[in-house]
C-alpha cells in the first residue's frame, strides 16, 4: 500500500526512508489508488498547466465581464496601470491571479485547483515564478505534484470546500499549495516546503466564505490575488529558514477546527459577511432571479416516484 497523504510527518518519513524527491510518493499514490500510469499522470498535469497559463493569458487579453457585471476587466487594468505599488513583478502576479480567476467567473476554461473558486492562485503564482526564474516545464509539473500532495493532506485533515470550511478551505488551501510549489521550484527542501505551507495557512486561517449574491465573484476574485501574494510572502519567509513554530500538520488541524465551528452563514450560504451588507443585499436583489414560483402547502410536489402515466 502506498502512503495515503494523511500527514506531512508521514510524507517526510517516506521520502527519508526511500530517499526520493518529495513529488515521488504523490505519483506512487495516484498509481496505486487510481490505477493510473506515470506517463498519463505527467501528461495530464502538463495539460492542466497549459490550461492554467492559457487562462492567465485570456484574462489579460480578452473581454472579461461577468453576467452580473460585478467583474469587469479588472485584471487588465491592474496589469497595465502606470503605478507599480511594490514593483513590476508584484503588479504582474496580482494581475495574473485576477486574470485566471476572472476567466472562471466569466465562464471560461480553468483548472479547479483545488476548487473553481480558487482557480486563479496557482496559475498566477506559477506563471510569475516561471517568468522571473525561467523554471522549466518539467519542474513546474513536479511542483504541481507537490501541490497535489499538499492538497490531499488538507483534504484528509480538514476540507477544501467553502461550504464545509469557509474561504480558508478554498483560497487558503490553494495558497498553501502554491507556496509549497514556489519553494520546491526554487530548490527548497522538505522542511522549507512544510514551513511555507504552515505559514501560509497561519495567514489564511479564519477567512469566511461570504459571496455577494452567492456568485463566485465578490470577494472571491480579489481574494485570489491576495492569496497569491501570501503564497509568495510565506515562501520568502520559509526559504530563509524561518520556522513556522506550529508544525504544519497542526496548522491544518487548526484550519479544520475553525471550519467546523464556523457558523453556517459564513460557509457559502451568502447569508453573512459581505453578502449580508446593505450593498450586498441590494446587489443580490438586482442580480438574482426574482420570478420564482413558491409552491403552496398542498402542492409541494408529488411524491417521487409518482404513479403518473409514463
Amino acid at each position: 500500500m502506498s502512503f495515503l497523504f494523511d500527514s506531512f510527518e508521514g510524507w517526510k518519513a517516506i521520502i527519508e526512508e526511500k530517499k526520493v524527491s518529495l513529488f515521488q510518493p504523490v505519483i506512487e499514490y495516484e498509481i496505486n489508488e487510481k490505477g493510473s500510469e506515470e506517463q498519463s499522470i505527467l501528461l495530464g498535469l502538463e495539460k492542466a498547466l497549459d490550461v492554467m497559463f492559457d487562462a492567465v493569458d485570456s484574462g489579460l487579453t480578452e473581454d472579461m465581464v461577468s453576467r452580473s457585471g460585478m467583474i469587469n476587466n479588472g485584471a487588465k487594468k491592474v496589469y497595465n496601470h502606470g503605478v507599480s505599488v511594490l514593483g513590476e513583478n508584484f503588479q504582474k502576479v496580482i494581475a495574473r491571479a485576477l486574470a485566471a480567476k476572472e476567466v472562471n467567473s466569466c465562464m471560461g476554461r480553468v483548472v479547479a485547483a483545488p476548487t473553481a473558486g480558487a482557480s486563479g492562485i496557482i496559475p498566477g503564482v506559477l506563471y510569475t515564478l516561471k517568468d522571473i526564474h525561467s523554471i522549466e516545464k518539467k519542474t513546474l509539473v513536479e511542483a504541481l505534484l507537490v501541490s497535489a500532495g499538499i492538497g490531499l493532506i488538507i483534504d484528509n485533515k480538514a476540507s477544501l470546500a467553502g461550504a464545509v470550511g469557509g474561504c480558508q478551505a478554498e483560497t487558503g488551501s490553494a495558497a498553501a499549495m502554491a507556496s509549497g510549489a514556489i519553494v520546491y521550484c526554487l530548490g527548497g527542501d522538505f522542511l522549507q516546503v512544510s514551513n511555507a505551507v504552515g505559514i501560509t495557512i497561519q495567514c489564511m486561517l479564519g477567512l469566511v466564505c461570504d459571496p455577494v449574491a452567492g456568485l463566485v465573484e465578490v470577494p472571491c476574485v480579489v481574494r485570489n490575488a491576495s492569496a497569491a501574494a501570501i503564497a509568495f510572502s510565506s515562501a520568502q519567509i520559509a526559504m530563509a529558514g524561518v520556522d513556522a513554530v506550529i508544525p504544519v500538520d497542526e496548522c491544518i488541524e487548526a484550519m479544520g477546527e475553525i471550519g467546523q465551528s464556523m457558523e453556517e452563514r459564513y460557509k457559502e450560504t451568502a447569508l453573512g459577511g459581505l453578502a449580508a451588507t446593505k450593498t450586498g443585499k441590494a446587489l443580490s436583489k438586482k442580480i438574482l432571479i426574482s420570478d420564482i414560483q413558491i409552491l403552496g402547502e398542498e402542492e409541494v410536489l408529488p411524491e417521487k416516484p409518482s404513479n403518473k402515466a409514463c
Binding site: L4, V110, V111
Partner: peptide, 23 residues
C-alpha cells in the same frame, strides 16, 4: 472514495462553479 491528484489539480472545467456549471 479517496481523492486523487486530478481532484486537487483539476478538473479542467468551464467556470464559474463546479456544482452550478460542471455538474
Amino acid at each position: 472514495k479517496r481523492s486523487g491528484i486530478f481532484d486537487m489539480i483539476g478538473p479542467v472545467m468551464i467556470g464559474p462553479s463546479s456544482s452550478h456549471t460542471a455538474g
